[in-house]
Design a protein around this nucleic acid. Structure first.
Lengths: 165, 165
DNA sequence: GTAGGATCTAGAGTCGACTCTAGGTCAAGT
DNA sequence: ACTTGACCTAGAGTCGACTCTAGATCCTAC
């Protein structure tokens, strides 16, 4: 398990297990240039990963999970691969992403407010005895406890980002 | 603009403008059963929407923006279409979605912490004079100011939700 | 009556991020 | 010798949510 590099070697399956990515995804990421250093191979041609790779992948997973697209991750990877001297660039990329994530959290939070509000309305309807209110066939604006409560944020367009969510 | 229904009529283009959805998307949503009441048509066969529809669509946009898939929105729409009596069902669906949104906000927030941390590291590197640190070719764990700072949450697997983000 | 613009339908195409398949290799165990 | 299971490559397929195209229709204004 140790090649003498002083670091533990891992097979693709082991990395998959550790990262939660599938082996397919690992190979795919490699093709996409999402690995900071070229994967080593054993004499049989099989991929050999180090703990370094796992840590790098873990970072990538976090970036992906926060909505960074693969091309951007590739860019970042390339900067890192180029080595010292482009820290400002990397920082710029991270800051931009941070802003996106912050925005997204904001959007989601505004959505959550509305959902909470609606949940509250239904709870009321239900425990004040089953029947009587709410839109039937035509969606009469879904019961109205305070009109200006309905569209905070997300105005015309919903910030344009369905499924960026 | 007024058909005597007491409510303002709108063309598909106008609804598109008001909601930020494209006309294509509006027709698509209709096919997908995402409208609480069947769209009216004018004598020429063109769609006629009311303010009601715009409000319903606005709700749908919010649900979409918070990650609810179209099939779920369709389900909800169908419940509403069926009319009073299924409030518990609707409530259950909304509560489930609320939980998802909350989880997602939590995940994103954890990612944000990490990104912030990394931004901080790069800021340090940069303003303590350009050169010297950080991973060069192999990603030596990306500078290490406190190891346990690196993976809070998102453990093995990153919560399994790339691009659910 | 005719040009322009918005609308209609049905259906094909796109995009991102994987996932899966086919067909083959390799190492370990029996 | 042989089975098993993890691995390999190249490339095709999938999924969700739209977007776009083609070809026709319908009003308005000139």
């Amino acid at each position: 398990m140790d090649t003498g590099t002083g670091t533990t070697d891992l097979s693709i399956g082991q990395v998959a297990e550790r990262t939660g990515l599938s082996v397919h995804a690992l190979r795919f990421y490699e093709r996409e240039g999402i690995l900071a250093n070229p994967v080593r191979r054993d004499p049989g041609g099989r991929r050999v990963y180090g703990e370094d790779d796992v840590e790098w992948l873990t970072l990538c997973i976090i970036l992906r999970a926060s909505g960074m697209p693969l091309p951007a991750i590739r860019q970042y990877t390339e900067m890192v691969r180029r080595g010292d001297g482009n820290e400002e660039e990397r920082l710029a990329l991270l800051r931009l992403h941070r802003e996106r994530v912050t925005d997204q959290i904001g959007r989601l939070t505004r959505c959550l407010d509305l959902i909470n509000h609606k949940v509250g309305v239904y709870e009321d309807i239900i425990d004040r005895g089953a029947a009587g209110h709410e839109c039937v066939a035509p969606p009469a604006p879904e019961n109205r406890p305070a009109r200006e409560e309905r569209l905070r944020g997300n105005g015309p367009n919903g910030t344009g980002s369905p499924e960026q969510v």
